[in-house]
Nucleic acid binder design. Sequence first.
DNA 1: ACTCAGGCGCTAC
DNA 2: AGTAGCGCCTGAG
Length: 105
Amino acid sequence: MSERYQAYYRIIGSIPEGCVCTYGTIAALAGYPGTARQVGYALAALPEGLEIPWHRVVNSKGEISLDNHGHWGQVQRAMLESEGIQFTVNRRINLKRYGWPHESI
DNA sequence: ACTCAGGCGCTAC
DNA sequence: AGTAGCGCCTGAG
């Protein structure tokens, strides 16, 4: 595992419960701005045993990026809902409300 | 809401 | 080692 992946994991691990963070934000906070896509690789390569709140990572639109029709997409949605995050009717998350860190304004 | 182009590391050849 | 294609992205048009 590369140093960068660990940086990603550290940031993801610091996302508070009930909040979500975007790929781009994670990349930036980890010290690698502009590498949002790489965060996807980091998650795909995420060791199963590791306790990382991967489900709190969504794309810039506040939507679940991996196949929301697939199994993992549904698992992610369920996990987020169980943390108190409410999805909009079109299966999206209001980043203004749940986004972390509170970047806007 | 949809399409297009930029961007960066991973994988395959 | 060098090249080419690809992806859990993003911002702009």
